[in-house]
Every structure is written in C-alpha cells, then in structure tokens.
Amino acid sequence: MTALGFLYPGHSAEDDYPRMEQLLGSDIRLALVHTDIGEDAHRVDALLEMGSADRLAAGVEELRLSGAEAVLWACTSGSFVYGWEGAHEQVRALAMSAGLPASSTSFAFAHAVRELGVQRVAVAATYPEDVSALFAAFLKDAGIDVVAVRASGVVTAAEVGTWGEAEVLELARSGDHPDAEAVLFPDTALHTASFIPALEKELGKPVLTANQVTVREALRLTDRRVNAPELGALFTREPLIQA
C-alpha cells in the first residue's frame, strides 16, 4: 500500500480524489487534509495568504499520522502566485515541515507537460486575467511554450466547484488553440476527474487537469506508476522525458 498525502484548500472539488483513487485500481490510497482557505478569492493577496507556510504547516501532522509517504500542496494558484523561485521555497518549507518529499500542483503541471513530451500548450483557466497570466508566466519559466490563455474571470473557488461537465467542455473548447499540443486546466477547485476521456475526445489531444496532475506528481515522488486509462493520456503513456 502506498499512501499519498494532499493538502487541499477548502471544499470545492475534493471529491475528485476518492474518484481518482477508485480509477487508479491499485494499492494506492489518497489521504486528503483540508487547509484553511482564508478569503475565497482568486486575487493575488488572498492567494499569497492561502499558500503561506503557517497555513500549510497546520495540516502536516494529520498527513503524517495518515502514513503518507509524500505530500502535495494541491493548489495551483496558491503556489504559482509566488513565482518560480518563491514556489520552490514554498515546497522546500513544506518538505522540511512534513519530513517528507513534497511538491505542489504548479510543479506537477510542469513535470506532466515534460512527461507527455509536448512543448506547446494552451491554458483554459477559470481565473481572472491577471492570475491566469501569472500561471502562464510560471509555465514559461519552466521552459514551456504557452500559445494561448483563456481566462474565465471567476473570482471564487466556491463558484468553480459548481461547474459540471457542460461548463468544463465549454471551457475546453474556448481554451484550445490549433497550435497547442495539450490543454491545461489549472484550477484544483474544478471538477474534472470524471470528464478527462470526454475532454480528450472533444479536443483530440491530451488534457492536463489540476487534480489529475497533482496525483500523478505524488506518484512520481514515491516512484510509483499506475496505468489508468480513465485518467487520460498522462496515465497511459510511458514517460518520454524523465520528470
């Protein structure tokens, strides 16, 4: 049994995790601890506070007690908002606090893009334009070519959590670009675990969604690989580049 630990802010799409645990169909357990979201706002100051070291450290002990072998900060905006270097510092502090290998969803996206062996991506974001631009900048710092960014302007995670398959498919269509080799959906508040095959069929290319890549990153940290076709190309292809 491999136990993977996730610090998840608030309550929006946390039910993606038991769904993914089921789809992994293996001896993998996904342990989720909710962190205090503070002010629910896709706004830079609120996101910086949400990802602060004190808020993350508060959930670490519960994850340790769960037997987790690695810990992921399951929040994209609360990590990339710190910038490339700041996000590294955030992960280092989390690893020291937990005494475990650690990463975040932002780095999970960078590693997943590399693993797929693609270079050009489109971003289909729920965020406002300024926050979406910060994610694109983070990806560019990771050496990824961002060919298009679709910002939906949604201010709260609570609203994103109400979106269903129809809204996610519409976001996919509007966020895709002919030059993109993959489409990224960066918000962990967005339900996607049940929709990935439909998204990839609709777009005709791989999709990377926040909760999906977060789980893949935790597996990477524990040197586990699981074939799970219902979780998309990321979980069926052999790694093309060592992450």
Rank of each mutant, 00 (worst) to 15 (best):
Y127V: 10
L48G: 04
R55N: 11
S132D: 02
K140V: 15
G153R: 10
T156C: 00
S77I: 03
E89C: 07
L48N: 04
G99D: 03
R114N: 04
P101N: 08
K140G: 15
A93F: 08
R64E: 06
W163I: 00
L139G: 08
A157H: 10
E61W: 04
V155Y: 12
L65P: 01
V60Y: 13
G117H: 14
G51L: 13
A95R: 07
G164A: 13
T162I: 05
G161L: 01
P128T: 11
V154K: 05
E165C: 09
L116G: 13
A87V: 03
F138S: 11
V147T: 04
A112V: 03
E159C: 00
L48A: 05
L171Y: 11
A166R: 13
V155N: 08
D141R: 09
L171R: 05
A108K: 12
S66A: 15
A95P: 08
G153A: 05
R150Y: 12
W163K: 11
L72W: 02
S97M: 11
R120W: 03
A133E: 14
E49F: 02
H111P: 03
V154Y: 03
F135I: 06
E129L: 07
I144E: 02
L56I: 04
A158E: 02
V168S: 05
V71M: 03
G59V: 14
E159W: 00
R55H: 07
A166G: 05
A136I: 10
L116R: 13
L65D: 11
V121P: 01
S106P: 05
A158Y: 00
A157E: 12
S77L: 06
G161M: 07
W84L: 08
A158V: 01
S103V: 09
S104F: 10
W73R: 07
E167G: 01
R150E: 15
G164Y: 01
A87C: 08
D54W: 08
Q90N: 10
G117M: 11
G117A: 11
W84Y: 13
G86Y: 06
A133V: 07
A102D: 06
G143Q: 02
V91F: 01
E89Q: 14
